[in-house]
């Protein structure tokens, strides 16, 4: 408690340095939070598309039920298909009506006859989709094949790029934060060199001298983490209606509060490590034995 009090007093007596330290930490954790949210959101979008039927075969009107069953069985027996779902003309109409229930004009014009029956097929491995698609296209009863592989692979490559950029930016900001913290704590150690010498001469041990500086670093880290997280949560809440509209039908937003609080937990841990490391490095650098 006494170390905390001393650290707090040091912070209050040099508010501009404290502000600079908290500001750079906030930037680091804001970037961390935003990239974590983007990464989590995009991963959810990818897994949504991956879990959905990845190939949809629309049948010709003359296709018989036995022929469709036969095609379905041959695909199931191949061992590469994880699931199939047959959607009859009537079911297709029901789905259409559900999707357009707010637009009576669109409902009036459509009947079950004009909607094709379809078979939705998903595979265990995304690469097998091409094989399934080729097989379906060769069948005489299939009118059209809709294939989502391109969507998924584009999303996957985007997610991967975002992850790489995110890691790079966060690591860069973390390194800059450590340097700035080392400089700020170093300045404070230099300012208190006389006091430190006196304390040592009357019996203060190394840890008694170091501890307030380390706690100061931890306080900067924690402040930065909490403020950065709050800003990112604010941005997320503000953007959620727009993002939900943009990703209509993909149930990703709003993000669950449990994800955000887990993120806060990770950031607090990261802040403790970052704050402790940088201030410990500073006291080792500027406070030789």
């Amino acid at each position: 408690m006494k170390f905390f009090k001393t650290a707090w007093k040091n912070i209050r007596r040099s508010p501009y340095q404290a502000f600079a330290a908290i500001f750079i930490m906030t930037l680091t954790f804001l970037a961390f939070s935003l990239f974590a949210i983007i990464f989590y959101g995009s991963s959810e979008v990818v897994s949504y598309f991956e879990s959905k039927p990845q190939v949809t075969a629309f049948f010709k009107d003359e296709a018989k039920e036995e022929e469709i069953d036969s095609l379905k069985n041959s695909l199931t027996e191949s061992g590469i298909v994880s699931g199939t779902k047959f959607v009859s003309k009537e079911e297709a109409l029901k789905i259409y009506r559900d999707q357009n229930k707010d637009d009576p004009l669109l409902l009036d014009l459509v009947t079950a006859d004009i909607l094709p029956a379809s078979l939705e097929i998903s595979t265990f491995v995304i690469d097998d989709l091409t094989l399934v698609s080729d097989t379906l296209q060769k069948s005489e009863i299939v009118e059209e094949v809709v294939f989502q592989k391109d969507v998924v692979s584009t999303l996957t490559s985007w997610t991967s790029a975002i992850r790489k950029i995110g890691v790079f930016v966060v690591v860069l900001l973390a390194v800059v934060s450590v340097f700035i913290m080392v400089i700020i704590i170093g300045i404070k150690v230099s300012q208190k060199r006389g006091d430190i010498e006196t304390m040592r001469l009357i019996g203060a041990g190394s840890w008694y001298v170091r501890m307030p500086f380390i706690i100061e670093g931890v306080i900067y880290g924690l402040f930065g983490a909490v403020v950065g997280w709050l800003i990112s949560y604010g941005i997320l809440l503000y953007a959620t209606p727009k993002l939900s509209y943009f990703l209509k039908g993909v149930p990703v937003f709003p993000l669950s509060p449990s994800f955000m609080f887990s993120l806060l937990g990770v950031e607090v841990l990261f802040a403790l490590i970052l704050g402790t490391f940088s201030s410990y490095f500073a006291v080792l650098r500027y406070l030789k034995k």
């Binding site: 006196t198 040592r200 001469l201 009357i202 203060a204 041990g205």
Partner: peptide, 15 residues
Amino acid sequence: PDLRKKIGVVFQDLK
């Protein structure tokens, strides 16, 4: 530090 706690010192510049 233990030694220094056992000896009282009045420094020239008081400290």
